[in-house]
Design a protein around this nucleic acid. Structure first.
Lengths: 136, 136
DNA sequence: ATAAAACTCTACTAATTTGGTAGGAATTAA
DNA sequence: TTAATTCCTACCAAATTAGTAGAGTTTTAT
């Protein structure tokens, strides 16, 4: 399952996409309209900012905007930032690879083929961008 | 990510498939050969037995056998038993459906389409059986 | 009979992750 | 200067995960 943090992050970005205009979008308005606990949201937005997905403007009338274009930010990017690997076993993860500790022989580990096939099926779906997602 | 319990469960079943013969396979031998903590494994095997995936024979020379044929036990079945839903959001789960609490309007929840598409891509891969998986 | 090898069951525990909350400092527009 | 806003650190509670402990039950071989 996705964590709530990841769900909140994706929803926030969709909201941002739909509401970004001449002025940036405040955390408060995201919180209220998307029903996300304010303080929790702040932390999520910070993480997205630190990963250069969004940028912030401080002070009154401040808020958030996209840093990268929403046409290039993919759902998979957000999931990796917030929840970590997409793959279900670490030894087939592209971005978070780790040897499976208890695997006797990784070369012939029988789970690798299945779960790398699974990852290959998942990725294209998750490569949808925030912009595309918001419009459908 | 898969939980260790689920990884252990799948590996145990593959081991069982490869070693089941005239005599059943003991938890001890699975534990030693697959490098799984013995007492932890016992609990996992119990769950698989309670869900009629395997059956047990008690006493000396006892152990485990398949209850259902390994040609019919799918990876997805084990994952659901041990880890729960396959879908990444509860509102698109077939077997563990739940309304997403914070969703303002489920009908138009923008995440549903994406994650139900994802689930549809994942399922066929995970429908591979223990028998098939063991042979490739 | 009895000892050994196995499964069965309940209960507990430790570590990690998740989902937050609290409070204040810094910044900016009006 | 004040109100609105982000920024940052620290903390906390609940849930989940990954085990461990130990006593009990069943069966086989001797």
């Amino acid at each position: 399952m996705l964590s709530k943090r990841a769900r909140y992050a994706i929803k926030s970005l969709i909201y941002l996409y739909k509401n970004e205009g001449s002025s940036p979008v405040s955390a408060k308005s995201i919180s209220v309209n998307e029903n996300i606990p304010f303080k929790f949201l702040e932390k999520i937005l910070r993480e997205l900012r630190q990963h250069k997905i969004i940028k912030s403007e401080r002070g009154a009338e401040g808020g958030y905007r996209f840093f990268k274009s929403p046409q290039t930010v993919r759902v998979v990017d957000i999931m990796r930032i917030i929840d970590g690997p997409i793959a279900l076993v670490p030894c087939v993860s592209e971005n978070f690879y780790e040897k499976c500790e208890e695997c006797v022989d990784e070369e012939i580990c029988i789970l690798r083929r299945l779960f790398s096939e699974l990852r290959d099926q998942m990725l294209p779906v998750l490569e949808e961008t925030i912009a595309d997602l918001s419009q459908k």
